[in-house]
Every structure is written in structure tokens, then in C-alpha cells.
Design a binder for these strands. Sequence first.
DNA 1: CAACGATGGTAAGGTGCGTTACCATGCTTA
DNA 2: TAAGCATGGTAACGCACCTTACCATCGTTG
Lengths: 230, 230
Amino acid sequence: MKFKPQHMQQVQQSLKQLGPARRPNIGADERAATIAAVASRLFLQYGYKGVSLESIIAESGGSYRDLYSAFGGKERLFETVLKRMCTEVLAPLKKALANPSLEALPLEEALTHVGHVVLTTILKPEAVAFHRLMVSEAPRIPEVAKFFFSHGPESANALLGSFLAKRVSKTGCALEDPHIAAAIFLDGLINNLQLKVLTGGRVSPAEVTLRVKHVVRLFLHGMLRFTEGK
Amino acid sequence: MKFKPQHMQQVQQSLKQLGPARRPNIGADERAATIAAVASRLFLQYGYKGVSLESIIAESGGSYRDLYSAFGGKERLFETVLKRMCTEVLAPLKKALANPSLEALPLEEALTHVGHVVLTTILKPEAVAFHRLMVSEAPRIPEVAKFFFSHGPESANALLGSFLAKRVSKTGCALEDPHIAAAIFLDGLINNLQLKVLTGGRVSPAEVTLRVKHVVRLFLHGMLRFTEGK
DNA sequence: CAACGATGGTAAGGTGCGTTACCATGCTTA
DNA sequence: TAAGCATGGTAACGCACCTTACCATCGTTG
């Protein structure tokens, strides 16, 4: 009410300066991007039903009209935003797993590195909030949830699995099922600590390092050789 | 509106038959129990904001008055119900882990048994719904969430950890940190499959069995001995 | 037997929210 | 320069829902 008029005039002036060729689109796209960004943050923090369109608009500027023109409603906005988040959140994870420099490292170091990256990525507040939101709203958006699972955890398993398969065949040590082995490795890292954070607990960097160390050891040597192999 | 009058008359009659000594209390407790049961089911299915008090009452019988007399509002009802669920859902898990007959079994068989029980328990639809609800609403009920984590996953880790410690000391094979080992074992079982179900996927019993087998093997022998030890 | 008190059901108050219709503003074109 | 059109903001509609005040009903007691 108070600051919107001047804000709008600024936008209109910038449009004027850009010339008459494309009158509305640039402003609209920018606005849509802003709305999406604000919506992402609020949905992550408060969940689907905890966010009102009014609160989004209050922060993004613009009005209901812009939101409905760009996204067509709350449900659609939510789907769009969440699907985008899937790729964003998982990008560093994929990058780490597909990193070709891993090939040069000894297996133990490679696994330690991967484990550390995966765990710190997964435990970041944004990633935890994203996980919470995905789990909460999966029934509302089943196709997005499937997309997340196949492009997230399953993709990570596949990448690490093929890495293991290559590595193991090189060293002459066969491996029955690299995919399952990879899944167990990643799960052994993640589950407990992620759940701890999800339920409000804290995880220190030292805890992360310790966990990675143990998982790698267990993975390589088995439990019963912990002290023997030392 | 249509069937409530007769329903109420039945209740009143049953109270009459029970004598004049305790007039209201039995009916009220029963009603509270029914409300809690219905609320549990609906909250599990639709989440906190997805359930209206009206929908609870419509199924449980009684009225807003009963709900407010017994629980004092929606938030309180939710907390009460969820805290009860914590112990109910986790009971079979604890039972399996504290089962003394495990002591007699060979380690591999004991782990396989525990793994199978844990996994089938965790993957049951009610348990998955409970997990979803707990993760979703943890920020709303931080103390309940902490209660869940400490009495659920952490307790399971402790039980399995002490089992491992005893077992390992008996066989002369030392183990650096039985608690972390137990956590990794349980996490390796759970995470991926639980997340798959949470995002709408299906997990077959064969998948469960396979996973347990691999985790136990990995746990006992490490990855690199999969084929050597076979 | 009558009045009082408590227990339980109903309905209305008040709020928040998603959606859409309406209106103003400014650019483009004849 | 004036008219038309599209774009954007406002406000109202309708709905859902938590909460509480009010009322009826029934058992108890003087």
C-alpha cells in the first residue's frame, strides 16, 4: 500500500528505458523469478500449507495477478518451484560423485572424500529443509517425488556404483553387486545423522569426520577386522 | 445430524445401566480414546493442517465439547497423540533388538534376523506415515521430535550396540565403537528403502531379503571380500 | 417433587486464505 | 492526439476452520 506505487513506477521507467520492442516480458520474467525465489525460501521454511500467497507477494513485490499469470495458482507454483529445487540441491552431490579426479586416488581416500562431500552437502540446512519438504508433500506431488528419488538418491547410487565397479575390476577384486554396495555405503553415512538434524538435533563437523572414517573402514574391511587390520 | 441422536441415546442408556455411581467418567474416557484413535489415523494420513477437528468428530462421535474437554485444543491433541505413537510404533523394534534368544544364534543369523525385523517394521505403511508426520511436523513439536529420536533410532542403536559389544568380546574380536557400528548397520538397511517408500515407490519382500543379506555380509566381511569369502 | 448443577451438542463469531472479477494506468497505433 | 488494449493492483467473494458461548438434557439432592 505504501511503497508499492513508487516501486511500480521504477519498474515502468526501466521498461521505458529498454525501448518499446518488448514491453512487458522482461519485467514479467524478472518478477516471476523473484516470486519463485521467495516462494522457494518460504515453502522450505514453513511447508506448503504454512505459506500464504499473500506472504509471498509481500516479499517479492508485484501482486496476485503476477503470480497467477506466471504460475497459475498455488499448487502449480509449488510443483514448479520444488522441481527446480531438485536439481539445484543435488547438483554438488552429483558433481562430487562424477569427479574424474577420483580415479587417481587410492580407494580409501576416494571413498573418504566422497563420503565427506556427500555428508556435508546432505546436512546443510537448506538440504535438510528440502528433504523435509519433499517427504512431507510427497503425497501431494507424486510425480515430483518420483523425479526426486530417481534423480537424487538413485542417481547417486548409480554413479558411485559404477565407480566402484570400475575400480574393483581394475584391482582384480570382484564385487557381487556394486549398486547395492554403493547404496549401503551412502545410507550408512546419511540416515542417522540426517534424521538427527531433521528432529532438531545438531551434528558437529567432528561427528561427520568420525562417521565417514568408520563407514569407510567398515566398508573396506568389515566389522570384525577393525582392530586386526589396524 | 441424522444418526447422532440415536447414538447419544445408546450411550446414555448404557450409562444408566452402569448405575449412578460414576455418571460421566466412563463415557468420557471411552470417547477420549476414540477421538485419539481417529485423530491418529487422520493425522497420519493427512498431516496436521490437513485434518480438521470437524472431520475427527464426524468419525469419532461426540462433539467439539468432548474434544476440548479431553485435550484442550488441536495443538495439544496432536502432541498427545503423536507422543503415544512414538512408543507404539517403536515397540516391536525394541522387542526384536532386546530379544535374549539372539544371544544363542551365530552372529550372522542374529544380524540377519534383526535386520529383517527392523526393515519390515520400518517399511510398514503405518510406520512410514508416522515417519513422514514426524519429519514434517518436527519444527512444530520440537520436544516430541527429540523424544522420538532418542527413544527411537538412538535407542535402537544403543541396544544393537551393546549386543554387538557383548558378542564381540565373547568371541575375542574387539570392536572399536559398537555404537557407531550398530548405527551404520541399521542405517545401511533402512535409508534408501525407506526413502523409496516415502516418495511413493514400492519395495518388494525380495528386495528386503536381498538388502539384509548384503548388509550382513558387508558388515561381517567388508566389501572387498564379497567374492573371496564366498 | 422441584430445583440445581454438570455434561454434552449446536451454532455463531472471528480469522485467514485461495481465487477471481473489476478497475486504473500506460504504451501502441490509427 | 485520441482510442484501444494489455498489463498490473485492489478488493471482494466464498470457503474452511478453530474456538467458545449458549442451550438442552439428564442425574442428583433438598
